[in-house]
Design a protein around this nucleic acid. Structure first.
Length: 562
RNA sequence: UGGGAUGUAGUGUAAUGGUAACACUGCAGAUUCUGGUUCUGCCUUUAGGGGUUCGAAUCCCUUCAUCCCAGCCA
């Protein structure tokens, strides 16, 4: 008997399976949609929604539409529309022929609005924005009907047509649904359906000067596309009655249902397009694709794989409880994925010259180095070894603390893939800084092991001085140093991490790195995971971004010894 | 003295009337040609109070806490 390891269903899967089992889904075809507004770049929070919508459709053999919710021409741009598609494709999802825009439905939406007026279910209101607010009442007191609420149908029709023709200035009129001004739910107090905006739309240009509102557009767009399960975030829970109202308008003919889940929050990160846009505008980051940004494009440039991000989202799960996921989980997912796929390579970030005094001058040996101990199929590469090398400055200490098993006078360590060396001397400059260290090597340890199998506790990475190439290494860290940016002072800019980017220009890289290119996952042994920068990396001028550090249990221990 | 939602280890998420669990974090240790990986162990959980029941995280009552809503944004 086979034992199936069944992952428990999340609440959305449960709803869908129940709907399917009870014949509530037309043609048994699940149809979902991912409906971003093209007013900014997609960020990691959107990945959750993307994975949910595309993932659910995939799991139940349905389809998922990509619909750009472009009903506010003042904020939306073609640049964003294009970036959104690029990002979703990079994640590995495909909407096939089902790319839509809310603006595709402007004609239908307009017709439905006119019908509503004819049915006496919508009216043109001349109240100012200020007055509308006043008439709406408050959270605890009911609203009052607008004096225009009973405007004759003919007049409503005429005014709405004049609005469309551009005969009235912005703000002079608005089309409203006639629902219930006394509703305890503010969204039902005669919501606006159309407003006047003399703004050129990225897709429809100047065809329209009235634009439909979310509560009208979104549900009807869903209905038009035959969406069965319309999944959105918690803050739209209050809009569900409006959603249900719109989808039940005569002639709509299809009834999708809205379900809400908790959006993704991660500590030390900002997840709001508005605030991210602000970081870009203020020049705090280099752009939407700055590797410190939580945008998909930024994370990608940083060196994350789509697989690790999807895994992350899957581990986070879906529920209706608002939650804050630990940044550690993101890094864990990155490391787990990168450990399996990254090519190992040796780079010394902070070089310290090491001279092997008993090694012949002018000689070069080429060692075979495995590319990935986790993947035998990854093969090997050649690395040059010679008398003068660079090792990491922190891999040597003249006076080591307890537990330090790297290089110090008299101690023997392994140079990865090469030889054992023993420190025999320290050369200092006039100020007493260690300039260079001298070692002897054991020719018997060639390749990194000896026949006597004696233990060396430390293994250092190194680069041959004569063969090393130079490059710029960008060490990225969290953009914010506070778990909840802005919680302390009310201004998230007060919590920027001053060390979120450290540029290292002194690094010595093994020569094979001259062939590195963006998209290739790398591990700089003992330093972290890196990727060539997709913007600035060039032949002869390498630039690498640190995706994430390796787990480092030594520095923790060392800190405790203090 | 409005409406809508939600409360399970530090953080996420399971268990849907039958032994509270998985992952991450943290802490120990083993292994290791990366102080990485891998492996082992440990820590800590049903918001409070009542009730129903042989039995409650789960059902009922009640209290408390948190989040969202008063754009002509989405």
């Amino acid at each position: 008997m086979e034992r199936k390891e069944e992952r428990s269903l999340n609440f959305l899967e449960r709803i869908i399976e129940d709907d399917l089992a009870n014949g509530r889904v037309p043609d048994n075809l699940i149809v979902t949609r991912f409906p971003p507004e093209p007013n900014g770049y997609l960020h990691i929070g959107h990945i959750k929604s993307i994975c949910l919508n595309f993932g659910l459709a995939e799991k139940y053999g349905g389809r998922c539409h990509l619909r750009l919710d472009d009903t506010n021409p003042e904020k939306e741009e073609i640049e964003y529309i294009e970036a959104i598609q690029r990002d979703i494709t990079w994640l590995g999802f495909d909407w096939g022929d089902h790319l839509y825009h809310a603006s595709d439905y402007y004609d239908q939406l307009h017709r439905i609005a006119v019908n509503l007026i004819e049915e006496g279910m919508a009216y043109v209101d001349s109240l100012t924005a200020e007055q509308v607010k006043e008439y709406r009442g408050t959270l605890t007191t009911p609203g009052r009907n607008s004096p225009d609420r009973d405007r004759p149908i003919e007049e409503n029709l005429r005014l709405f047509e004049e609005m469309r023709q551009g005969k009235h200035p912005e703000g002079s009129y608005v089309l409203r649904a006639k629902l219930d001004m006394a509703s305890p739910n503010i969204n039902m107090r005669d919501p606006a359906l159309y407003r006047i905006k003399f703004a050129s739309h990225p897709r429809t240009g100047d065809k329209w000067c009235i634009y439909p509102m979310y509560d009208f557009t979104h549900p009807i767009s869903d209905a038009i596309e035959g969406i069965t399960h319309s999944i959105c975030t918690l803050e739209f829970e209050d809009h569900r009655p409006a959603y249900d109202w719109a989808t039940s308008i005569d002639g709509i003919g299809h009834t999708p249902h809205q379900y809400e889940f908790a959006r993704l929050n991660i500590n030390y990160m900002l997840m709001s397009k508005r605030r991210l846009l602000n970081l870009v505008k203020l020049g705090i980051v280099s752009g939407w694709d700055d590797p410190r940004m939580p945008t998909i494009t930024g994370i990608r440039r940083r060196g994350y794989s789509p697989e690790s991000l999807k895994d992350f989202v899957a581990r986070v799960g879906v529920a209706k409880v608002e939650s804050v996921v630990d940044y550690n989980l993101l890094e864990f997912c990155a490391r787990e994925d990168l450990n399996k796929r990254a090519k190992r390579v040796m780079v010394v970030l902070d070089p310290l010259k090491l001279v092997i005094t008993n090694y012949p001058e002018g000689e070069t040996e080429w060692f075979d180095a495995e590319n990935n101990p986790e993947d035998p199929d990854a093969g090997t590469r050649k690395i040059p070894f010679s008398r003068e090398l660079y090792i990491e400055r922190e891999d040597f200490m003249e006076v080591p603390p307890k537990g330090y098993h790297r290089l110090y006078p008299g101690n023997e360590v392994r140079l990865k893939h090469a030889y054992y060396v023993t420190c025999t001397g320290v050369i200092k400059d006039a100020q007493g800084n260690v300039k260079e260290i001298h070692c002897t090597y054991d020719p018997q340890s060639r390749g990194g092991t000896t026949e006597d199998k004696r233990k060396v506790k430390g293994t250092s990475h190194w680069v041959s001085a004569a063969h090393a190439i130079e490059g710029e290494i960008r060490l990225y860290d969290k953009l914010f140093s506070a778990e909840y940016p802005g919680a302390r002072t009310g201004n998230y800019l007060d919590d920027l991490n001053a060390d979120s980017l450290v540029v290292v220009s002194t690094a010595k890289l093994e020569p094979s790195l001259k062939d590195a290119r963006p998209g290739e996952y790398l591990q700089f042994i003992r330093n972290g995971y890196f990727m060539a920068d997709s913007r600035d990396h060039a032949e002869g001028k390498p630039v690498f971004n640190r995706t994430v550090t390796l787990k480092d249990s030594w520095s923790k221990k060392a800190a405790k010894l203090e």
